[in-house]
Simulated assay, not measured.
Amino acid sequence: MSAKAAIIGSGNIGTDLMFKIMRLTDKLDMGIMVGIDPASDGLARAARLGIATTAEGVEGLIGMPEFGDIEVIFDATSAGAHRHNAAALAPYGKKLVDLTPAAIGPYVVPSVNLEQHLDATNVNMVTCGGQATIPVIAAINSQTPVHYGEIVASISSKSAGPGTRANIDEFTETTSDAIVTVGGAASGKAIIVLNPAEPPMIMRDTVLCLVDRLTDAEQDRVAAAVRDRVTEVAGYVPGYRLKQAVQFQHEGAEVSGLIPEGRGTGEYTRVSVFLEVEGAAHYLPEYAGNLDIMTSAALRVAERLVTTKEEVAS
């Protein structure tokens, strides 16, 4: 039996997520689409599809007769709006999947730590850059301790809507934090680039990790772990792939300034991984892989959350 879902946020991300729920899963059923702009395309499309809608935000959602049947609520608004929404929904015992950088609940990256947070009432999907790169950092860290992890997420400026632009600071802070808390790096840094190129480029992500000097055999193990993790992520984000083979370059004391005090030997290997994410074009264009990876990961998380609830109930 499928669980009823609501989406708060009728913009690009929320609308894409609505189509994914309708097309890709039998574990969830679209129940309500929530917005604040009565003229938004997302609300109009939901209404045409026979889905209950409200343009009165979270308060309108709570007041709807269908609200009692909702089990999972996705929040695709902004960090500030999610803080308000989470507080308003707290008394009702719904599962919240947060696609903003608000980070009220624990960070969740499906291929890394989903099973650790199945009992959480509010889970945070980090950021698009985090969903694309943290699986790789965690894979490297599974083979050798990562002293420093740096990611650069390059996305088309056309795929960065008002919410993304308003949350740029939260993006870098949230992703940097999750590189450490989820990816396992001792320290981390995140950079986002909005590329205005025409035609629009698909999402590109670069992962740079500093680890202790690796032998050839250790490099092979790291590369294999990265390839395996990329395959796993591609299981729920079909457009996610390695752009080229994993690269290794030996470094010396010149990079010690990036290594936390008390760690490292003075001899390091830089592991470089180059990724790209092509969108599935359910609603968004193919170049908007940054948004597609967020909705795909959120869908995977919600499916697991409701499956767990059914397992507990039985």
Rank of each mutant, 00 (worst) to 15 (best):
P285T: 11
V136A: 01
N167M: 13
G63H: 06
D69T: 04
I155A: 10
L242Y: 02
Y240F: 15
T15C: 06
A190Q: 10
I191G: 01
I32N: 10
G80S: 08
L43T: 04
S10M: 12
L258W: 09
S156M: 10
E59N: 11
V230K: 04
S187K: 06
A223Q: 06
A120I: 00
A88D: 00
T15G: 03
M1F: 15
E66C: 05
R23P: 06
A234M: 05
K20G: 04
I293E: 01
V146E: 03
H84F: 05
D212N: 10
Y148K: 04
A302L: 09
Y148W: 08
L28N: 08
A223C: 04
D228Q: 12
A178I: 09
F67K: 01
E59M: 05
S187L: 00
M125Q: 08
A245V: 06
T308S: 15
G130H: 06
G239H: 02
M1I: 12
A76T: 10
P135F: 08
G163Y: 08
A288V: 07
D177A: 14
I151C: 05
Q143R: 15
A47R: 13
M30D: 01
V271I: 09
H250M: 02
K95Q: 13
N167H: 02
N195Y: 02
V182E: 01
G130T: 10
I137P: 02
G257C: 07
I179P: 04
I51A: 02
A302Q: 07
E311H: 13
P196N: 11
L291P: 05
G163I: 13
N85G: 11
A132E: 02
V211I: 02
T231Y: 02
L305G: 00
V58S: 01
E267K: 14
G289D: 06
Q131G: 04
P106C: 03
A186Y: 08
N12P: 12
F67D: 00
I62A: 05
V126R: 03
I13K: 04
D216V: 11
D212R: 03
T121S: 15
G31P: 08
T175D: 11
G235D: 14
G239R: 03
K4S: 14
E251P: 00
Y236N: 12
E267R: 13
R304K: 14
P38F: 09
